[in-house]
Structures are given as structure tokens and as C-alpha cells.
């Protein structure tokens, strides 16, 4: 299997007058063709920034560097703005977490689809309109021909997310970055949207970087899973490795924190103690030691790196493993 995306030693800093925050600190991973890679972690762990760094769409205050950041062997960090624009959308697509906010409120969804299809897809206006209807049909928007002339606020959130998926799909990217695609949807709609995404991924033989803090979504849909904490990857493995045999105490804590649906199983909430530390004051040694239930004295000094544990490809960054 060849690697579609190869990231090695990715660092992203946010600079202000007083501070320099390292939001992503030495993240390395790769995505193979047709692979769905999951990325889990709490809010503020740097998941979204990792995704935006790949697309080089960071805010002006941020800079990123990496030993390697290649898409199909092509370096993204040194690519010209023009080349990056060509890659965005057509090679790497982005699906955002809040679907209503991801659509321009003053244009109809048809105008937005047709704009993308004509400007980026090179279609004529009439061909673009036909393709737009076909795309909306593909993501199960009923009465697509007529609804093309509706504004985003006239759709439900779930429908909006399907429209966003259609919009991203319109350029047929090879790699889809889905940043919390179901976070703002309710459970049944979540399942529908996830099923649709998975379907499309299989049909079009796309690869996907699926970012979520919902462990259920990750467990069901990914080929491999990365767990991120405070700008670092702390554990990588197959869903079986991660969910049935977690090695890192953080992963273990995340899994314990999933509430049970069994009403007889009266559990105390196994919430993780404390909050994710401020990236302004990153703890010394292992970054997780301030909240780790099994931390030892050496965890304060030793900064663990990802090391193999158990089955093939299962890595964890903990000195106790």
C-alpha cells in the first residue's frame, strides 16, 4: 500500500505578542489509499489544527513546520499558493463540524454547488446544474431539483451536513478530512450521516481522516485510530488495539469515561480528573502526568516517545508500557 498522505514531525505554533503556543508538537502519521484513519482526543488537543495544517489553511497567527508533509510524494509546505489551491478541494476535501456555519448564508445551496463545479470543476453552467442535482440526489436530499434554489437556513442541520458532503464530493477529492462531521447532529441523524460518509468513501475509494471526540463513531468506522493529547499522538493502533487493549492511561481513561446505556449498571461517572492543561504551561516529562491515575515520579522527567507494544503497528507513548 502506498501512502497518500505522509506527515512527519508536524509542529504548529501560534504566535502573539506575549506568547508562543505550540498547538501541534511533533505529530507523525500517514494515511494509505482507501484507509480511514481516526483521530480522537479532547477539545483543545490539537486535532483540528492538525487537519488545517495539512491543508495549509491556518489562521494568520499560526505557522507550521514539519520534517515531511507530503501528499502523493509532493511537498505541501513548499508548494506555491496556486498549487495549494489546486490541491485543496480536488485532492484533499474538508468537511467541517458545524454544517450550517459551513455554508454561505446569503447564497442558495445551488449557487454554492454551481460555483464550485464551474470555477473548480470546469463545467458549464447548465452541466453544473445537472451535476448539482445528481450530487444532491446522491446524498439523499429529496426533491433536489427544486431545493437547489433554497437557502441554507431552510434546511435541517442533518440536511445541511449532507449538502456540505455533496459540496466536498463535487470535486471528487482522493482524501477527505472530516472534522467532527457529526458533532452537532442528534444521534439518529449522526448515524445516517456517518453511514452516508462511509458509503461514499467506499464507492469513490477515498481515504479519510476522521476527526472526532466521539469514540463510538471512531470505533465503528476506522481502520486505524490515533489518540491525541495536548498536541501529541499518545497511542496508535487498530480499533481492536485501542478499544479492547488500550495501553496508554489516557486512552484507558477516555474509554472508561464512555457512559453506559445499561440502566442496571449504576456507574459513577468515570470522568477524567482535572482539565486539559493550558498549552501555555505544558507539563514537564509526560504531558499527561498531571492527570494520570498511575503516574510515577519518573513520569515528571521522562518524555516518552511512541514505542511498539503488543500487536503489530500498535504504538503507545508511555514509560509504563
Amino acid at each position: 500500500m502506498t501512502h497518500l498522505l505522509h506527515v512527519d514531525g508536524l509542529q504548529t505554533h501560534f504566535k502573539s505578542d506575549q506568547h508562543c503556543i505550540t498547538a501541534v508538537d511533533g505529530v507523525s502519521f500517514h494515511i494509505a489509499e482507501n484507509e480511514v484513519l481516526g483521530l480522537v482526543g479532547e477539545s483543545g488537543s490539537g486535532k483540528s489544527i492538525t487537519a488545517l495544517s495539512v491543508l495549509q489553511l491556518l489562521p494568520a497567527s499560526a505557522t507550521s513546520s514539519a520534517t515531511t508533509l507530503t501528499y502523493r510524494g509532493e511537498a505541501l509546505l513548499s508548494a506555491s499558493p496556486k498549487r495549494l489551491r489546486e490541491i485543496r478541494g480536488k485532492e484533499i476535501g474538508l468537511i467541517f463540524q458545524n454544517p450550517l456555519a459551513a455554508l454561505n448564508p446569503v447564497f442558495t445551496i445551488g449557487e454554492q454547488l454551481i460555483e464550485t463545479l464551474t470555477i473548480r470543476g470546469g463545467l458549464s453552467k447548465t452541466a453544473a446544474r445537472e451535476k448539482a442535482v445528481a450530487l444532491l440526489n446522491q446524498v439523499n436530499i429529496p426533491d433536489a431539483g427544486r431545493r437547489l434554489d433554497d437557502y441554507p437556513h431552510q434546511f435541517s442541520l442533518g440536511m445541511c451536513q449532507r449538502i456540505v458532503i455533496a459540496l466536498t464530493l463535487s470535486l471528487e477529492p482522493k482524501l477527505l478530512i472530516a472534522d467532527e462531521p457529526t458533532a452537532s447532529l442528534d444521534v439518529t441523524v449522526q448515524a445516517q450521516v456517518m453511514a452516508l460518509l462511509k458509503d461514499i468513501q467506499r464507492q469513490h475509494q477515498m481515504s479519510m481522516l476522521l476527526i472526532s471526540h466521539d469514540l463510538g463513531v471512531i470505533a465503528q468506522n476506522c481502520d486505524r485510530v490515533m489518540v491525541m493529547y495536548l498536541g501529541r499522538i499518545v497511542e496508535v493502533g487498530t480499533p481492536n488495539d485501542i478499544f479492547l487493549n488500550p495501553k496508554h492511561p489516557y486512552t484507558q481513561a477516555l474509554i472508561r469515561a464512555i457512559p453506559s446505556t445499561n440502566p442496571n449498571h449504576k456507574q459513577v461517572f468515570n470522568a477524567l480528573k482535572g482539565e486539559i492543561p493550558s498549552p501555555l504551561a505544558i507539563p514537564s516529562g509526560c504531558r499527561f502526568h498531571t492527570r494520570c491515575p498511575v503516574a510515577e515520579a519518573r513520569c515528571r522527567q521522562e518524555d516518552p516517545t511512541l514505542t511498539a507494544c503488543g500487536s503489530d503497528g500498535h504504538l503507545a507513548a508511555c514509560v509504563l508500557v
Partner: peptide, 27 residues
């Protein structure tokens, strides 16, 4: 310019000019 739809428009590979004039200005 910090709104998600602007970021997503750029992620679709639209040019900065187009994003500014077609997506930001009307709003």
C-alpha cells in the same frame, strides 16, 4: 473572515479574491 464558511470556501480551492468578493462582501 473567521467564519467557517470562509474557511470551507478556501478549502474548496477558491481563490482569495473570489472568497473576499463573492463570499465575504455580500455578507
Amino acid at each position: 473572515r473567521e467564519r467557517p464558511f470562509v474557511l470551507v470556501a478556501r478549502a474548496r480551492g477558491l481563490s482569495e479574491w473570489r472568497v473576499a468578493i463573492r463570499h465575504i462582501l455580500p455578507n
